[in-house]
Computed example of a mutant assay.
Amino acid sequence: MAIKDLSLSAKMTVDGFMNGINKSTVKGPGLEFSQYRSYQPGDDLRALDWKMFARSDRYYIRESEVETNIAIRILIDASASMNHNDGDFTKIDYARYLGASLAYLANLQGDAIGLYVLKNSGIFSMAAKQDYQHLARLFYQLEQINPEGNFTKPIHYKELFAGTQKRELLIFVTDLYQSDEEIIKLLDTLNTLRHEIVVFHVVSRNELDLDFKGYSTFEDLETGETIQIDQEKARQNYKSKLATYLEETRVKMLDRRIFYRTICTDEPLDQALRDFLKQRSKLRI
């Protein structure tokens, strides 16, 4: 992620991670044999295996594996809290590289990729498409994200319902900073679409450890409110409450059948890509 060119960084990340591309499959006409099954009225006669008929005097359908292509929508939280930094690196930086790597990987798999940036003033949207020029435009839009303000208001959510009726994979990259469960409410709304949802909860190391060297005054990036903290005295209680919050969040996602993963900005992207492929392999469109 030290490479500033987003497309080059995504390519190097994915190419270095992948020795081969794992592709999801369904049963149907294809090249790679999967299994035989008994003929049923209405089956395509072209799928009959006549050699099996000659050996057994029974009709069998030869099934093979084919690749499935889906639409993947990457949702990026662009509220001001994503400007939180650990050193010179912000949460939105990590979200950019994660989104770019996932998009590059999905494009390699032949999937259509869309981008939705949830801003204070509304939602920037790029409908899902599958071609290299579209991927280049997606990289460009990721580079242009400038987090500001609060989380997107529900009045703007209509953009998220503009996809097809086909099941999609929605990947939401967010720090889950919310004042009134607004992000959880959004996920409940998205759940009504019956898509697969993956949430990558981005946190920073100094945020996890309450280790902001040299600081005693903290400012809320979205409201501007400040608070004085003695980090040494507050650390133990803070970590306990944070652990409780993260566990409660995990349970909320589990209850909603949402794949959820906390990912720290000092963590390599490899594990996030593995988690993506794991979820991708479960889809059968």
Rank of each mutant, 00 (worst) to 15 (best):
residue 145 I to R: 02
residue 39 Y to I: 14
residue 144 Q to M: 13
residue 105 L to V: 08
residue 18 M to I: 14
residue 276 F to P: 12
residue 36 Y to L: 02
residue 186 L to V: 06
residue 148 E to D: 12
residue 129 K to Q: 04
residue 282 K to F: 10
residue 270 D to T: 15
residue 62 R to G: 05
residue 159 E to P: 05
residue 72 I to Y: 00
residue 97 Y to T: 12
residue 229 I to R: 06
residue 259 F to V: 11
residue 251 V to E: 06
residue 180 D to M: 06
residue 52 M to P: 01
residue 219 E to H: 11
residue 89 F to A: 02
residue 187 L to D: 12
residue 215 Y to L: 14
residue 242 L to W: 03
residue 80 A to D: 02
residue 89 F to S: 00
residue 16 G to M: 02
residue 40 Q to T: 14
residue 225 E to G: 13
residue 81 S to V: 03
residue 173 V to Q: 10
residue 118 L to D: 00
residue 185 K to G: 01
residue 235 R to H: 04
residue 151 F to Y: 11
residue 220 D to W: 06
residue 110 G to V: 12
residue 6 L to W: 03
residue 8 L to K: 13
residue 197 I to Q: 01
residue 43 D to H: 09
residue 168 E to L: 07
residue 97 Y to H: 15
residue 198 V to C: 06
residue 192 T to N: 07
residue 223 T to Q: 02
residue 33 F to R: 08
residue 13 T to P: 14
residue 89 F to W: 02
residue 243 A to Y: 06
residue 49 D to S: 03
residue 214 G to N: 02
residue 60 Y to P: 01
residue 160 L to A: 00
residue 20 G to P: 10
residue 90 T to R: 13
residue 86 D to R: 03
residue 243 A to H: 08
residue 57 D to P: 09
residue 162 A to G: 05
residue 143 E to Y: 07
residue 148 E to P: 08
residue 241 K to I: 04
residue 12 M to T: 15
residue 83 N to S: 09
